[in-house]
Amino acid sequence: MIPPAFDYVRPGTVEEAVRALADGGEEAKVLAGGQSLLPLMRLRMAFPGLLVDAGRVPGLRGTRLEGDTLVIGALTTHHDVLADALVRRHAGLLAAVTATVADPAVRHRGTLGGSLAHADPAADLPAAVLALEGELVAVGPRGRRTIPARAFFVDYLESALAPDELLVDVRLPSSEGWGFHYEKFQRVAQAYAIVGVAALVRRDGGRITEARVSLTNMGATPLRAAAAEEALSGAADAHSVTRAAGSAAVGTRPAGDTSASPEYRAHLARVLTGRAVLAAAGMG
């Protein structure tokens, strides 16, 4: 199908982009990689009056290390994230999750920031950034602000970004040394996750000292499985991990759709949390 008509600007700087967004008001939308937005527009499920193409704004791509924090430009493509040595060292979970996003052609265009700003709870990257306790840096007419990931995902397809704000950076505290794993469960390879579980684990002498577990598609936003995280602390064998994973669905509100019912999603969250944590902890 055919996307509806819109106006188009291609700003050359962040400031120009922000001004264009401000001028466009509610009608304006940022075009990053376009891999979520353009299919929605083709189905005429999104009708932005103005697209602000951030694709050529300099300084929004690539990675750098600031102290113990990995900074990834919002317009860095999934493909570039996957190939990046700093990401692999400091945010291995992000690389593991990114490898499961869509397919190679989509990963060449789709961007980390674009995916996060879309705030789809069925998408994989929000859960990764939540587990990594990242921060998102946005620039708007009122300046620059930093939003913690846990405050960024507000509701279904709704982020904390104001319509005139541009996401510029994703900041991830280095998780070097943590074990990580993403367990994604799909109907077919192309489908969204029925449930995904991102696990990040620190071990000391065979015992889990800290575990972070975040869930894809278990509610209107990506969620941390707080009860399971707490129960996992101190777990030293597969049996105790599996038992702790039994509380992974506590506090979640998964939807029902053609792929799965809420009960089954809750069941999967428990099973997959056990598997993800065991793999992350090297206890599998």
């Binding site: 188009y8 493909h79 989509v106 060449h108």
Partner: peptide, 16 residues
Amino acid sequence: DLDGVSVKSCSVLAVQ
């Protein structure tokens, strides 16, 4: 192929 990498040309605008 767009500048050396595969893309889906239904999800890229000509202006891009």
